[in-house]
Simulated assay, not measured.
Amino acid sequence: MTFEPLRTQVNSIMKNSKSVDARLLEICELLESNIPYYNWVGFYFKNGDKNELKLGPYVGEPTDHTIIPFGKGICGQVALSNENFVVPDVSAQDNYIACSITVKAEIVIPIFIDGENIGQIDIDSNTPHPFSEKDERFLEFVCQKVAEIL
């Protein structure tokens, strides 16, 4: 999988004049429709001063997990660790919040503004062990671009 053409499209989306949420949704749609093993793509953001994440724009199956406390699940752990979290097999994780029985793997990359973790991109895959270092680098690029419009 080559991510270079998608980088150009991400840059283009970030430069358009739509609302932030509209651009974030467009990013979700772009990734989900162009990367076969990205089956749920969404953003979570810190919910004000609370130690929890709130679901932002996403594409994929509806989720009940609109609020996630810091420390809970993969997203909640990234909110505390400030580090990428790649889960090749969600069934091997004790602190995994199941969104769907079809999900086999997850990757979560934090978004930073001035060194502060303000949110993250969360991707679920129905394919076991799909994510590589190339996914991590590409998603770090996406998160950097997202931070520039927030």
Rank of each mutant, 00 (worst) to 15 (best):
L150N: 13
N82F: 02
G42V: 12
V59Q: 09
L30A: 12
H129T: 10
I109V: 13
P110Q: 04
I123G: 04
Y37W: 11
A92K: 15
K54Y: 03
G115N: 09
S81D: 08
K18E: 12
K104C: 03
T2N: 15
N84L: 03
V146I: 07
L80D: 13
I97P: 01
T2Q: 15
P110W: 01
T66M: 04
H65D: 07
T2D: 15
G119A: 04
E106P: 01
R137E: 14
D135V: 05
I13F: 11
A147P: 03
H129P: 00
S125T: 07
V103E: 11
E4L: 12
N11A: 14
V41Y: 05
D64L: 09
S91C: 00
T102F: 06
E4T: 13
Q93P: 01
Q120Y: 04
L6A: 08
Y37I: 00
F85W: 07
Y58R: 03
I27S: 02
S125A: 02
G71V: 02
I68P: 05
D114C: 09
S125H: 04
E61R: 10
E136R: 10
T63Q: 10
I149H: 02
Y38V: 09
L139D: 02
E32S: 13
K50F: 08
I13H: 06
V86N: 07
I101N: 15
I13S: 14
D114F: 11
F138V: 11
I68N: 04
F141G: 13
V78N: 00
N51Q: 14
F3P: 12
P62T: 02
V20L: 06
A92G: 06
R7E: 15
E140Y: 08
Q9Y: 11
Q120L: 15
I111H: 00
V103T: 14
G48F: 00
A105L: 05
I113H: 10
P88R: 01
V103F: 09
F45M: 14
I149D: 02
L150H: 12
P62M: 01
A98L: 10
T8A: 09
I111A: 02
Y58Q: 11
E133I: 08
N16H: 09
V146E: 04
I121N: 06
P57E: 15
Y96F: 11
A147E: 02
D64E: 08
S33C: 05
I27N: 03
I107P: 00
V108S: 09
K72Y: 03
E61P: 02
K54L: 13
H129N: 14
E29K: 15
L6S: 05
D64S: 13
S100K: 05
I35H: 08
I97Y: 01
K134P: 01
E136L: 11
P5K: 10
S91E: 07
I113N: 10
K54A: 14
E52I: 03
V78P: 08
E116Y: 07
H129S: 12
